[in-house]
Amino acid sequence: MPPILILGLGNDIISDDAAGLLVARMVREELAGVADVVESSLSGLALLELLLGYERVIIVDAEGTGQRPPGSITEIDPAALDALIAPSPHYAGLPEMFAIAEQLGLDFPKEIRILAIEAENLSEIGGPVSEAVRVALPEAAARVTEMARGWASQD
């Protein structure tokens, strides 16, 4: 398998939560042969299994910080995440995964980048993708493609 994974997270029946999946679909064809493109609605540590075996990973997801205008694209450096206490396994996220993978010596990616798209609506089943998020998708897709191609040309 290619050493690069694009992981779109989200849920295509819950409004803007579809963002990560839509970006994955937009880049799949273009990155054929360069990266595996996977869509998932799973949460928490279930994601660990998806990441194992890849060298580099780009995760695309919706976020609802309420701090940024909807459609904002933020690149998050996972190394900056240090939260280790998950209030629920639903939220057991990347910091836990990093810690566990490192402690247990698992074959975990050496580099993970996260692109988060600020959502407007993340709580309505069957709701539409908002206009602000919809117009941000091509840019997010372009950034994913550029990043993946950059990595591929290094190797």
Partner: peptide, 16 residues
């Protein structure tokens, strides 16, 4: 182990 809304799948961010 309450489920805080069935929509949540991941949290690539902090959990403050």
């Amino acid at each position: 182990d309450p489920c805080h809304g069935c929509a949540t799948h991941a949290l690539p961010g902090q959990m403050p």
